[in-house]
């Protein structure tokens, strides 16, 4: 099973990484975006999937990564060092913030994590002297033609995605992953069985933040310009968990499958029904919540979409809870 998952992932990585060989610039651009979102989704899965804490902090970590990367690069650090700073800085930030907010459970945690995005955007917008405020920041651009730069960033984003995936496989098979799943199912029982739940949740939260920071730093270097609205994007912070739910929450491959299918679907709608593009996010959310509690991988696991759909529909008609995984 694990070998199958890794093979599927490897084939997908090859497909993304080889886009410059067979696709135009537009396709390469799409591949970079997919790799970026895959990393965000894999990251979210540590806290939202394994530990079952529904986080909306993705954009906070991504945005903070953008700014740490941009500022350290402007201060003269080489690009790769700037990205490492973004990773470490965001990880430490998440650890400190986690100490406070991981005492909250369920809805309270979700709202607090969403609040973090808004607060950081406000703070960054109003610290003009350091961050350029609402006017944004220029980041030193890469030398070379657009094709060359696109290839570099494709390699970088896919590389980060592979690392994040490898870490999630390690976590999945370790005591850490086991403990997080216990917390997801019954936190009090997890505590009684000997799991230091606070420490485990903080580790999961830090893991969910670090790679968002790396990706943010890389994104800032890629686009060459960031501003608070772009960096702390409220849509991104909702899209990421939706992608995980679409693919299958708490599984290693789910976030990858979810982000790929979501973005490809979005592309399709962009090109065919431009006006309705925003509506698809809403539609996907509704469909998953009502009819696909296990995500796409839940279907692949052999329960069958029809059976799952019919069961959910039946419950819905009876007025009971619909999405019971």
């Amino acid at each position: 099973m694990m070998r199958l998952r890794c093979s599927v992932f490897a084939v997908w990585i090859l497909a993304l990484a080889s886009t410059p060989l067979w696709g135009d610039n537009y396709i390469v651009h799409l591949a970079i975006t997919i790799a970026m979102y895959s990393t965000l989704a894999i990251s979210w899965n540590f806290i939202g999937g394994f530990a079952g804490y529904p986080s909306f902090a993705t954009s906070a970590f991504f945005g903070l990564g953008c700014y740490v990367g941009a500022l350290t690069q402007r201060a003269g650090l080489p690009v790769s060092a700037a990205w490492l700073c973004a990773t470490a800085g965001v990880g430490i930030f998440a650890g400190l913030f986690g100490l406070i907010i991981l005492r909250l459970r369920g809805h309270y945690f979700a709202i607090a994590s969403f609040g973090l995005v808004e607060v950081l955007r406000l703070v960054i917008s109003s610290s003009d002297s350091l961050t350029g405020g609402g006017d944004g920041l220029n980041v030193p651009l890469f030398h070379g033609g657009p094709d060359f730069v696109a290839r570099i960033f494709l390699a970088v984003m896919v590389g980060i995605m592979v690392i994040a995936f490898a870490v999630s496989i390690l976590v999945d098979r370790s005591r850490l992953g086991f403990g997080l799943r216990c917390i997801e199912q019954n936190e009090d029982a997890a505590d009684m069985v000997g799991i230091d739940t606070t420490r485990y949740k903080i580790v999961a939260f830090v893991l969910s933040a670090m790679f968002c920071g790396t990706v943010g730093g890389a994104y800032a270097s890629w686009t060459g310009y960031i501003d608070p609205t772009d960096a702390f994007d409220a849509i991104m912070t909702i899209k990421t968990p939706v992608m995980c739910m679409l693919g299958g929450v708490g599984t290693v491959l789910g976030p990858v499958a979810g982000s790929a299918s979501f973005l490809l679907l979005e592309e399709f709608f962009w090109s065919h029904f431009l006006a309705y593009n925003r509506a698809i996010l809403g539609a996907v959310i509704v469909i998953i919540i009502f009819f696909l509690p296990g995500g796409l991988l839940g279907i692949a696991d052999g329960k069958g979409p029809r059976a799952s759909f019919r069961r959910s529909l039946g419950r819905w008609l009876k007025g009971g809870p619909v999405a019971v995984p």
Partner: peptide, 11 residues
């Protein structure tokens, strides 16, 4: 898996 949780973390 339930019983494994006891073995992994307790004791």
């Amino acid at each position: 898996e339930n019983v494994m949780a006891g073995a992994l973390f307790g004791g």
